[in-house]
């Protein structure tokens, strides 16, 4: 892929989907995220970059309240999705997570058949009225996950039997099947080989048309390739946030520049 392409990419101005204000995250005594403000646009790929342990994954996990499952984790501040505070006491994290899907670093298909993996979300949320609808939904999701052609003849085979890249696309299809509005991706390609990575990146670019996609990545090249907006995290702070082209070519903060040129990180 040609990195120069980012310069030509037109950046649409979209509605704000996620708005975070003054977010602090503590792991026990450890202050992991310090006062982060960010607005994430709809129908845009936003990349979180930064060195290991900078808090980018932690912040991502705040957006669908996955941090709730960790006992010692405490989140302060506001995160609004479509204007609704997701840390409001009335919000059910279960409903939130149906709206904000997530793809993890390591492909984690359930030890079930491919079909059941994808149908799991629709079943628990009651998205299909009957078997035919469910079949249709599964097929549509697998197509969106760009894996339909590879698995359509063995939907009953266990999902764990697929290759790493296929497993990750299955997980994306599984996330898409619940019809979320936001898709969070936590280093989705770090466990994959370059070919599989290219397939996933292409897929992300297409998903942008329907969702707000937030991707955490270790690789600056990947961020440059797939995202329209980029946020740079360092030691728990959001250092710089802006259009991807601008961050990579003309960063404002010296820390961002040091990271991009490889002097820190």
């Amino acid at each position: 892929m040609n990195d120069m392409r980012i310069l030509e990419r037109d950046v649409d101005t979209n509605d704000v989907k996620i708005a975070a204000k003054g977010v602090q995250v503590y792991y026990g005594d450890n202050h992991a995220i310090k006062d982060v403000d960010v607005e994430i646009d709809d129908k845009t790929v936003t990349a979180f970059i930064g060195p290991s342990g900078c808090g980018k994954s932690t912040f991502l996990r705040c957006i669908n309240r996955m941090n709730d499952t960790i006992d010692v984790c405490r989140v302060v501040g506001d995160i609004h999705i479509d204007g609704e505070d997701i840390y409001d006491a009335k919000v059910d994290p279960v409903q939130l997570r149906a709206k904000v899907g997530m793809v993890f670093q390591k492909p984690n298909p359930f030890p079930k058949s491919i079909y059941d993996n994808v149908a799991y979300g629709p079943r628990i949320h009651g998205l299909a009225k009957n078997k035919a609808e469910l079949d249709e939904l599964v097929e549509k999701s697998l197509r969106r996950g760009a894996i339909w052609d590879e698995v359509k003849d063995r939907l009953d085979a266990p999902g764990t039997g697929l290759s790493g890249g296929q497993q990750q696309r299955l997980c994306i299809a599984r996330a898409v099947a619940t019809e979320p509005e936001v898709l969070l991706m936590d280093e989705p390609c770090s466990a994959l080989d370059p070919i599989a990575t290219a397939q996933i990146e292409e897929l992300i670019d297409e998903l942008r048309q329907s969702y707000s996609v937030v991707i955490v990545t270790h690789s600056m090249q990947q961020a440059a390739r797939v995202s329209q907006k980029t946020a740079f995290f360092h030691l728990g702070n959001l250092v710089e946030y802006g259009e991807t082209g601008q961050i990579f070519t003309n960063p404002v903060d010296p820390r961002t520049e040091s990271y991009i040129t490889g002097r820190i990180g």
Partner: peptide
Amino acid sequence: MTDATMTPES
């Protein structure tokens, strides 16, 4: 990605 026929709307 021939099979990724998508409708833009959610």
